Amino acid sequence: MPTIFSKITEGFSLSSASPVTSGIEDVIYIFNEDDITIQYSTTNPLTIDKLTPVNGGKLYKFQGTNNSFNAMSKLAKTQVGPRYTEEIDFNIAGLSVEIKAQLRAMGYGRVKAVVVNNYKDSNSAVELFGAVNGLILTEAERNAADEGMEGGYKLKLTNPEKLREPYPPRAVVTAPLTGTASYASTITALNELTEDAE
């Protein structure tokens, strides 16, 4: 007899005090798959308790403007259960050899990405995409005459072919050394791991 892996355990209702807000902030934290160890909550596989650098690994912070970043997660039903396609669209305003090197690295290597939702009244205000299978750069488009992008790149990170995620994007909720985890403590922890951290 098949095992039941999951059960519905509670309901939810919409909040009139703090309605859901669409979009993500104009910042994405990206890191190489092997540079950061992910620690999952022992009570909930959808929650990440801690991100730990490996051999000096860091997060790389990409910033944008005017709601130019977007993240998407889409359910796909398969014969072995639900899988999720994850995508992150963002822009790079620049054109240099260094930028092209980063694009090439994201196209060949696996990365993971952390996004910050505009909706903060949730324990999933900060989410990690590509937790199991990572993400790769699948689109990098540059139109030199595009005035909206000022000749920069439009990029898309998504799952490698045939490697969708087994869960929706994981919540990142990191506690300080003393005290309980919060949105503020999570953002502080992310910023401490960025490339420009002291």
Rank of each mutant, 00 (worst) to 15 (best):
residue 85 T to I: 14
residue 78 T to E: 12
residue 50 K to Q: 11
residue 78 T to N: 12
residue 41 S to R: 09
residue 30 I to C: 05
residue 55 N to M: 01
residue 65 T to D: 08
residue 22 S to C: 04
residue 76 A to Q: 15
residue 9 T to K: 09
residue 54 V to E: 01
residue 80 V to C: 06
residue 22 S to K: 11
residue 19 P to V: 05
residue 73 S to C: 13
residue 92 I to V: 07
residue 38 I to L: 03
residue 54 V to W: 02
residue 88 I to N: 03
residue 58 K to T: 07
residue 8 I to M: 05
residue 57 G to A: 01
residue 64 G to T: 02
residue 12 F to A: 14
residue 21 T to P: 05
residue 64 G to F: 04
residue 66 N to E: 13
residue 8 I to D: 05
residue 25 E to S: 08
residue 23 G to C: 02
residue 25 E to Q: 10
residue 26 D to F: 05
residue 32 N to G: 09
residue 41 S to E: 05
residue 89 D to C: 06
residue 42 T to L: 14
residue 7 K to C: 10
residue 36 I to L: 02
residue 73 S to V: 08
residue 20 V to N: 08
residue 91 N to V: 14
residue 24 I to F: 00
residue 37 T to W: 07
residue 70 N to P: 00
residue 28 I to E: 04
residue 16 S to N: 14
residue 15 S to G: 11
residue 53 P to W: 01
residue 74 K to W: 01
residue 81 G to M: 08
residue 30 I to W: 05
residue 72 M to A: 13
residue 67 N to V: 10
residue 46 L to W: 06
residue 39 Q to H: 07
residue 12 F to C: 08
residue 56 G to R: 04
residue 30 I to D: 05
residue 41 S to D: 12
residue 41 S to G: 12
residue 51 L to P: 06
residue 34 D to K: 05
residue 41 S to M: 09
residue 69 F to Q: 04
residue 46 L to G: 13
residue 63 Q to N: 11
residue 13 S to L: 09
residue 90 F to E: 03
residue 34 D to Y: 06
residue 79 Q to A: 13
residue 71 A to Y: 04
residue 36 I to N: 01
residue 85 T to N: 15
residue 14 L to C: 10
residue 58 K to D: 01
residue 71 A to L: 03
residue 90 F to A: 09
residue 29 Y to W: 07
residue 87 E to G: 12
residue 73 S to R: 06
residue 22 S to W: 04
residue 86 E to H: 14
residue 68 S to R: 13
residue 92 I to T: 06
residue 90 F to V: 06
residue 63 Q to K: 15
residue 25 E to Y: 03
residue 12 F to Q: 13
residue 9 T to N: 09
residue 7 K to D: 13
residue 18 S to V: 10
residue 24 I to L: 00
residue 13 S to D: 12
residue 79 Q to N: 15
residue 25 E to G: 04
residue 72 M to R: 15
residue 76 A to H: 14
residue 34 D to F: 01
residue 65 T to N: 13
residue 14 L to H: 12
residue 10 E to L: 07
residue 40 Y to M: 11
residue 74 K to G: 09
residue 82 P to W: 15
residue 81 G to L: 07
residue 26 D to P: 05
residue 65 T to R: 15
residue 86 E to R: 04
residue 17 A to N: 10
residue 49 D to H: 05
residue 37 T to N: 14
residue 86 E to K: 02
residue 83 R to E: 12
residue 24 I to A: 00
residue 37 T to R: 12
residue 43 T to K: 10
residue 48 I to M: 00
residue 26 D to T: 02
residue 87 E to A: 15
residue 28 I to F: 00
residue 80 V to M: 14
residue 9 T to H: 09
residue 55 N to V: 00
residue 23 G to N: 08
residue 10 E to S: 09
residue 87 E to W: 11
residue 14 L to D: 11
residue 79 Q to C: 09
residue 78 T to R: 13
residue 45 P to L: 10
residue 64 G to Y: 06
residue 30 I to P: 02
residue 44 N to F: 06
residue 24 I to H: 01
residue 44 N to T: 08
residue 78 T to W: 10
residue 14 L to E: 14
residue 67 N to S: 12
residue 24 I to E: 00
residue 58 K to A: 03
